[in-house]
């Protein structure tokens, strides 16, 4: 789909396009990619935390930072709990912050069900850890100005969330 970078380092914007998103022409852009491992609870939250630090350094309004951090955290936890592992791409231009979460499986059979508050396919041991309350995707949507999911069973899921700046 797009090039991944193990260290979350920026890649040359010319080489990368977030899944399906059109790149603005000559505007400065920042792109960073973060790998997230399946069931890697020790590192869970680190991608969201790094994304937050980057946005803070960019001087973004506290509210934008907060919403993006929450969306990134929910995306990251979804990758940890439900996917076979994947990555989160952070794309920042002068108009918006975009988060693209990509994985290669297992995919969702019914997206509208997944978007229902309280619906979760998380196993019991995850729920016992306090996750899997079925609020992840709805929460992510609530924090975003635009939100979309593409998913195919057996192929993977791409969740795109954008937050407008100012």
């Amino acid at each position: 789909m797009y090039r991944k970078n193990d260290n979350g380092q920026a890649m040359d914007p010319a080489e990368v396009t977030p899944c399906g998103a059109a790149r603005p022409s000559s505007e400065p852009v920042l792109e960073m990619s973060f790998e997230v491992g399946h069931y890697d609870f020790a590192a869970a939250g680190e991608a969201a935390s790094k994304i937050k630090q980057v946005l803070r350094k960019l001087g973004m309004a506290p509210d934008v930072v907060r919403r993006a951090a929450v969306a990134a955290y929910e995306a990251e936890m979804n990758l940890v709990i439900h996917s076979v592992g994947g990555s989160i791409l952070l794309h920042v231009d002068t108009e918006k912050v975009t988060l693209v979460s990509c994985d290669e499986g297992p995919g969702m059979p019914d997206i509208s069900l997944a978007m229902k508050e309280g619906y979760s396919t998380a196993p019991d041991e995850i729920r016992e850890m306090g996750f899997g309350a079925g609020m992840g995707l709805p929460n992510m949507k609530r924090c975003s100005d635009s939100f979309s999911i593409e998913s195919e069973v057996g192929r993977g899921t791409t969740v795109t969330a954008s937050i407008r700046i100012a």
Partner: peptide, 22 residues
């Protein structure tokens, strides 16, 4: 804390920062 008060400059600096860091 911000790297630059102008957003477009901050974005460009941040991209460069990541390249230097690498």
């Amino acid at each position: 804390l911000a790297i630059d008060p102008r957003l477009e400059v901050a974005i460009a600096k941040m991209s460069e920062l990541e390249r230097v860091l690498a």
